[in-house]
Design a protein around this nucleic acid. Structure first.
Length: 350
DNA sequence: GACACGTGGAG
DNA sequence: TCTCCAAGTGT
């Protein structure tokens, strides 16, 4: 691997010129002065960015850091407030783990994040990637930071023929060959920036790539065909009913159990989500209260592992019950699937 | 190792 | 419309 030094030099130079300005990054000037990023902000950004695009996560990052400037402030927040602030970002286990992690750091680590990969890895919601990323970016520790971007860059740089996910260990090994003690945080971010802006999944911009000359996939003429992938299984469809119980301009919500889909979030009461559609009678029987239900049509929503056809039913009912009553105009801090159902329902209600 | 777990943008 | 997939983790 005589090219290691040349590849590193080319990519780090590119990063020094082209690094994107992102709210969780300190500027290159601060980096040269030896200033590290705030571990809290680095950690928060890394968790938010898991399986999530920069444009989607950015407004949440800004809102969170304004409202909770420190890990202690976050640790002191109520569960429900945190979950509401996370609504719309998806993968809600991240939010539950975020709070658990903040509380662990506050109560067991004196408010300071562990500064080693191993220590970070022990925290809730911090896996191999996030531990390595925070260690490298916030603490300047040498770490092999491997996310989807890095896997793609490695698959192309070395023209790895094995398909992912089978090739993941090999891709990680290859990434490790390029890691040194020099500028670990910048190296990790350079590699990820390259993957995000140049070495994109489709239509990579090879003519702008600083390491094009080293790229085996480019030499073969089909960089976009890496990494090889195995076919994905078809996404099944499920059917459910969501119920809008309306009372004087308010709607009944329920807190979902911590485990499972949309865990810990507020949502509309629903039936089970099953393989077969729901008839009117079945929908009425599965409802949270006895009432004259009106059919308001259906909405479609796609989750990672299934598609959902969700019928929306509405009833006016002056009931008590174990509900969280929320004004119609306040139905904003909900998972997107319920936002979709509530909006469709309330539109058609008028 | 396989699967559960959200969402929205791009092509 | 439809497929892909984005700075992954927990079980």
């Amino acid at each position: 691997m005589t090219d290691v030094a040349a590849i590193r030099s080319a990519l780090l130079s590119w990063y020094d010129r082209e690094a994107r300005v992102l709210p969780w990054r300190t500027g290159p000037a601060a980096g040269r002065m030896g200033l590290r990023s705030d571990p809290y902000r680095v950690w928060l950004s890394e968790v938010m960015l898991q399986q999530t695009t920069v444009p989607h996560a950015t407004p949440y990052f800004l809102a969170f850091t304004q409202r909770w400037p420190t890990v202690e402030a976050l640790a002191a927040e109520q569960d429900g407030e945190l979950m509401a602030a996370w609504a719309g970002l998806g993968y809600y286990a991240r939010a539950r783990n975020l709070l658990a992690c903040a509380r662990a750091v506050a109560s067991q680590h004196g408010g300071e994040f562990p500064n080693s990969e191993e220590g970070l890895l022990a925290l809730p919601g911090v896996g191999a990637y996030t531990a390595a990323a925070v260690a490298a970016i916030a603490f300047d520790r040498k770490a092999n930071v491997v996310d989807g971007n890095v896997e793609r860059v490695m698959a192309r740089l070395f023209a790895v023929e094995a398909p992912v996910p089978e090739a993941k260990p090999e891709l990680k090994r290859l990434a490790g060959l390029l890691v040194t003690d020099e500028r670990p945080g910048d190296w990790a971010q350079a590699l990820m920036d390259l993957g995000a802006t140049i070495c994109k999944p489709k239509a990579p911009l090879c003519d702008r790539c600083p390491i094009e000359l080293f790229c085996a996939a480019r030499a073969k003429g089909a960089p976009e065909s890496y990494p090889r992938r195995t076919k994905k299984a078809d996404r099944p469809r499920r059917h459910g009913v969501a119920y809008i119980v309306s009372r004087r301009g308010e709607t009944a919500l329920v807190r979902r159990p911590d485990k499972g889909l949309l865990g810990g979030m507020l949502g509309l009461p629903t039936s089970d989500w099953r393989d077969r559609p729901w008839s009117d009678d079945e929908a009425a029987r599965a409802a949270p209260i006895l009432a004259p239900w009106r059919d308001l049509g259906a909405v479609e929503h796609v989750f990672t592992h299934f598609s959902l056809t969700l019928r929306v039913m509405v009833a006016e009912a002056d009931v008590a019950g174990d509900f969280v009553w929320t004004p119609h105009e306040g139905l904003t801090a909900l998972p997107s699937v319920f936002l979709k159902a509530a909006r469709a329902g309330l539109e058609r209600l008028v």
